[in-house]
């Protein structure tokens, strides 16, 4: 799935940064809302659900783009274990971007809550009402969210290492170009 391009395509880069903002927001909103009893609680919950579903839709588009356009090759001098780490974190990200929203949606279904996105717009249940299933999904949503955040921190540390220590061009594959020409 690699390509001869030296950068991700513009739509891939746009989605990467847009989703990075959305996902980081979701993680902070998530832990913030479950730790407050102020009116912020309802506001945050009302953002959490539609934004989570938006991430699910964007992740599907992003996965499709990844299959169509692939990714630029990693530098050939990159050690095999590092390549493996890059590949596994990429797979983990895609899994989480798709699984987290589905788990959240199923968790609400299993608890017999209506899954309201905004106003009168709501989603149908995707799981039967079941205390046991709700507990399983609730734990999964929580601990996978922490795993998600930890992986993001590692991803950021890795990318900054590539940029600031090795300066091997990996950062540039995803860097925004702000109108600069693609062939530069």
């Amino acid at each position: 799935m690699t390509t001869s391009r030296t950068r991700f395509t513009a739509p891939q880069r746009l989605l990467h940064w847009l989703m990075a903002i959305c996902i980081l927001s979701m993680l902070f909103i998530g832990v913030g809302m479950v730790s407050t009893v102020t009116t912020k609680y309802l506001t945050l919950v009302q953002i959490h659900k539609p934004l989570g579903i938006a991430i699910l839709l964007l992740a599907i588009v992003r996965l499709a783009l990844r299959f169509i356009y692939g990714a630029p090759a990693l530098p050939p001098d990159l050690p095999e274990p590092v390549k493996l780490a890059a590949w596994s974190s990429m797979v983990l990200f895609y899994l989480l971007m798709i699984a987290m929203p589905l788990i959240g949606w199923a968790m609400l279904s299993a608890a017999s809550y209506p899954v309201v996105l905004f106003g009168g717009v709501h989603l149908p249940p995707i799981a039967p009402v079941s205390p046991a299933l709700h507990t399983l999904l609730w734990n999964a949503h929580k601990y996978l969210a922490f795993a998600f955040f930890a992986t993001i921190l590692m991803h950021i540390a890795a990318i900054l290492t590539h940029k600031l220590i090795r300066n091997d061009g990996i950062f540039e594959t995803m860097a925004p170009t702000f109108g600069k020409s693609e062939t530069k």
Partner: peptide, 14 residues
């Protein structure tokens, strides 16, 4: 950068 992210998260989580 990583520590700031982790601390911000822990703070938000209370």
């Amino acid at each position: 950068v990583v520590a700031a992210g982790a601390i911000g998260f822990a703070y938000t989580a209370g």
